[in-house]
Nucleic acid binder design. Structure first.
Length: 570
RNA sequence: GGCGUUAUAGCUCAGUUGGUUAGAGCGAACGACUCAUAAUCGUUAGGUCGGUGGUUCAAGUCCACCUAACGCCA
């Protein structure tokens, strides 16, 4: 049995994610996890919320809540939405967990021991009113270039000129509006990634099977300009993981926390410990997935993420792991996605443009969204969501091809033979041809899923559904029954078995519909086929069934219009 | 300004290391069927593969330049 560790990029805590975020990591990761489980492999699928950093603090302040409380609430909101989309995490953790605190501090200690941490003194803007250092983007003022009065410390949005906070005329805090600012000297820890450059380079080179999108981004960061830059891993904030060297205090770093991008990926590991604890197991069962000296040598580790996260997963996080000198599992396969656009532009959290996870589930059940998103996943380039395309895909693929197939065969059988699988007849040429073709398609479906070719998997699955309709159309049991009832019984029996086979094969994409079909046949257990011909004999003559309710309702033109208007933004 | 990605039928996209008449789904037209969510099945039409030039016996597939969209960086 293979062992697969799967992680999805961890969503940031401040707010509800949109469908672009969902399709870029969590959803395809779920598809892969469900497939591997169905195949009988041992899978640990982890995700978490990324809770530290300034945006979380500010969002909490805006909500008028202590940041810890805010994060706890948003975590449960996101967890609920994940359940709503049927994301089958073995554990949905939190980067603010005690486990991640301890592990992040442990890594920092190990990196310091290895001589990979450097203390750097730098100047930063401090707000006396807010009693905090302000990141560049939280300082506003008048642009010296164009006079725009809401320019940010890193860039003027109006004329796009890059700025330093000290360039701004009449700088003020974006948090409070206070102008009582001063430049202070502060000391921070830097991770000396540059020392690890050759090691990282060689490691990336060894990944010849990675997508070009992934390796080209990594290579660019390694070789562009002065090469891989050292990175600050601490911040002057209250909310976060206190800077410690392992379990010991870190002189000079009192009151500082680790930078969110340092501790967030470490949560992938800590999350396994959270999972173990939540399931009443000791930590060895978590280490068994992560430490190659403690049982993880046979684990295949696959990460899913949007393209913006690639540098952190190919360079920063591996630098942390390699630099520690400890035998932690490194990623084996890294699947990255491009962006999903919304009706001609980008999804935008700040502008409320596009569809957010909570809104989507208010309109339609998870399977509708899962199908469209996965069958249109932005794998090779950015892709585009339009309501028209969504309507057509759902109506055609789900309602007409799959849903109607289940409906027509069960209703036909019920009216001609009663609500149980009919007996009699033997396979002929058409049946052999069907099985032959299904074997071929099934093989190719598995190969695409294995390779995490999401769109191609969806395409193949759709073709499998269509072959059911083709078969019925060709043998026409409604005609056969007039002259040869035995033969019609066989055709109908095969049709019913096809419906159940489709349920099993569709489960990774459409978990709910799959269950509905299985339940109609009184067969709760979803079984992945060993052999197509064999699984087409699952339902024996006499097996009772129910005609399932309508699996997928069609989306009307009126609904499409209404939703389009509702989600246009502004 | 630098770098990168993309540009293939009306729409959404496939096109392995360059090799016979460029593919799929949707949409369109026509036909078949009537069990079914007015569903299904079949046939046909449709593209000078963004532009120009080059390498080659042969280029959508490699190279150069140009154009457009998007993204990243300074």
């Amino acid at each position: 049995m293979e062992r697969h560790l799967i992680t999805s990029a961890i969503p940031y805590i401040n707010g509800i994610k949109h469908l672009g975020n969902l399709v870029g990591s969590q959803l395809p990761a779920d598809l892969y996890a469900r497939y591997l489980r169905a195949k009988g492999h041992e899978v640990l699928f982890l995700c978490a919320t990324d809770e530290h950093g300034t945006p979380a603090e500010l969002a909490a302040a805006k909500a008028g809540k202590p940041v810890a409380e805010y994060c706890a609430e948003m975590h449960s909101v996101q967890a609920e939405l994940a359940r709503g989309f049927r994301l089958s995490f073995d554990h949905f953790g939190r980067s603010s967990s005690p486990q991640n605190h301890a592990l992040t501090q442990h890594f920092a200690g190990k990196l310091a021991d290895a001589g990979l941490i450097e203390e750097v003194s730098e100047k930063q803007v401090y707000s006396n009113t807010d009693k905090r250092f302000l990141p560049d983007r939280y300082i506003e003022g008048t642009c010296p270039n164009c006079g725009y009065d809401k320019a940010r410390g890193d860039q003027c949005e109006n004329c796009t000129k890059q700025l330093d906070p000290t360039d701004l005329i009449e700088p003020r805090s974006a948090v409070s509006g206070s102008t009582d600012l001063e430049v202070r000297e502060t000391r921070h820890l830097y991770l000396r990634q540059s020392v690890l450059k050759d090691q990282l380079d060689a490691w990336i080179d060894s990944k010849s099977d990675w997508p070009v999108l992934t390796t080209s981004i990594a290579k660019k960061w390694l070789h562009d300009g002065n090469g891989l830059q050292d990175r600050g891993i601490t911040r002057d904030l209250d909310w976060g993981i206190p800077v410690r060297k392992g379990k010991d205090a870190w002189p000079g770093m009192e009151g500082k926390v680790f930078y969110v991008w340092f501790d967030a990926p470490i949560e992938y590991i800590a999350c396994a410990s959270e999972w173990a604890e939540a399931n009443g197991q000791d930590d060895a069962s978590a280490q068994r997935w992560w430490r190659t000296d403690q049982g993880a040598e046979d684990v295949t580790y696959t990460q899913f993420m949007g393209k913006d996260n690639v540098p952190f997963h190919t360079l920063s996080f591996p630098a942390t792991i390699l630099g520690s000198g400890e035998p932690w599992k490194l990623v084996d396969q890294l699947k990255s996605f491009n962006y999903l656009n919304y009706d001609g532009g980008q999804f935008s959290t700040s502008q409320g443009r596009g569809i957010f996870m909570d809104q989507a589930l208010e309109l339609l059940p998870a399977d509708y969204w899962r199908w469209w998103l996965l069958s249109h996943a932005p794998e090779s380039s950015d892709s585009e969501f339009t309501w028209e395309n969504f309507q057509v895909s759902v109506n055609k693929d789900l309602a007409d091809v799959l849903g109607n197939f289940v409906s027509r065969i069960t209703k036909f059988c019920r009216s001609k033979f009663g609500a149980e699988v009919p007996e009699g007849g033997t396979y002929g040429a058409e049946e052999e041809a069907l099985i032959q073709s299904l074997r071929q398609r099934f093989k190719s479906y598995e190969e695409h899923l294995e390779a995490i070719e999401v769109r191609k998997s969806a395409q193949e699955l759709r073709a499998i559904w269509a072959s059911g309709n083709e078969y019925l159309q060709t043998v026409a049991p409604w005609t056969t029954i007039k002259s040869d009832p035995e033969k019609a019984a066989m055709q109908t029996r095969l049709g019913l078995n096809l419906a159940l086979l489709f349920a099993d094969l569709s489960a990774p994409f459409l978990p709910d519909a799959s269950k509905t079909i299985s339940a109609a046949f009184g067969n709760q257990e979803n079984a992945w086929p060993e052999d197509v011909a064999l699984s087409l004999e699952t339902l024996a003559p006499g097996h009772k069934f129910d005609v399932p309710e309508v699996l997928f309702a069609k989306i009307s033109d009126e609904q499409t219009e209404e939703w389009k208007a509702k989600f246009s933004g502004q």
